[in-house]
């Protein structure tokens, strides 16, 4: 058997070449992704597409342009749950939405929305707090395939039990069943929930700010990024947010090595809910 050290060294080269191919052939730069998870995902992607090695995958990435959506899907944010980390959604409901209620128009950017579980959770929160009519949610993701799934709002019905528990724990005022129809082993969320959601492809690594947001949700996305790319994204969010706007990250994310984190003040450090500090101060002063 080939010594593991040699195998890993070879695979590291293969991974670098794959990243280069994705960048030069398709314009997607993954070089600033955290290596451990990226390596796992690329390996899995190769396996799923029947490639014996990452080099083989690179060959296909170069030659088969129709493969791009699948490649991006395999390299982007995985699925989530509705009302994942209920305490966060409860805090959004009880602490953030009452502040947002003072705006005539509320813009929310969910960055890295994957299959949309948390986008619809937000829509439900806004609906129940009577704010949805004047809200717009911009749900973005790198992957067009993921966005298509998110737009459909169809999920395995086996998730319903856990999601209902989450919804209740997040302070839901009704029953989650009110928002979906179940048929066979699938559940489909009420089409009306989608009325103020705009789905769009957006690459956090290369695309710019596109809206003025009052709240940015980006949970468990930056964990896949290196420190410089994480910091770059925090700058994007800062530039997108209005004065005093809110930022919500995933519950285990650390911003301890991101210079731009200094622009945010913790509203709830444990739940990773922040407020744009610099601009918030300006707001108080004006």
């Amino acid at each position: 058997m080939e010594p593991l050290g040699d195998e890993l060294a070879r695979e590291t080269i293969e991974l670098e070449l794959f990243i280069q191919a994705m960048h030069r052939r398709h314009g997607y730069d993954f070089s600033q992704y955290a290596p451990a998870s990226l390596r796992r995902r690329v390996r899995q992607l190769a396996q799923r597409l029947g490639c014996d090695s990452i080099s083989m995958l690179t060959g296909r990435a170069l030659h088969e342009s129709q493969l791009l959506p699948q490649l991006l899907e395999g390299l982007s944010v995985p699925v989530s749950d509705m009302f994942r980390d209920p305490a966060v959604f409860r805090a959004l409901r009880e602490q953030v939405l009452p502040v947002l209620a003072s705006y005539p128009q509320i813009n929310i950017w969910q960055a890295g929305c994957a299959h949309g579980e948390e986008v619809y959770s937000l829509a439900i929160l806004l609906e129940e707090e009577g704010l949805y009519e004047r809200s717009r949610i911009f749900a973005t993701d790198l992957s067009a395939n993921a966005l298509r799934q998110a737009e459909e709002g169809i999920y395995p019905v086996r998730e319903a039990k856990q999601w209902s528990r989450n919804y209740q724990a997040a302070g839901g005022t009704r029953s989650l069943v009110d928002y979906y129809n179940a048929r066979y082993d699938l559940l489909k969320l009420d089409d009306r929930l989608r009325r103020n959601i705009m789905f769009a492809q957006h690459n956090l690594a290369s695309d710019r700010v596109f809206c003025e947001a009052h709240l940015v949700l980006c949970r468990n996305v930056l964990i896949y990024f290196s420190n410089p790319l994480q910091d770059h994204c925090l700058a994007l969010f800062r530039d997108s947010l209005v004065r005093g706007g809110f930022l919500c990250l995933g519950m285990c994310e650390s911003v301890d090595f991101a210079g731009n984190a200094g622009d945010f003040a913790a509203v709830d450090a444990h739940l990773r809910i922040y407020r744009l500090a610099a601009k918030a101060t300006a707001m108080t002063a004006s």
Partner: peptide
């Protein structure tokens, strides 16, 4: 390892988390 996350180690011996399946 925190609940709900995969725990990984980067080559510079720092922790990384993932919510992959």
């Amino acid at each position: 390892a925190p609940t709900g996350y995969h725990l990984l180690v980067e080559s510079d011996r720092r922790f990384a988390l993932s919510t992959d399946p």
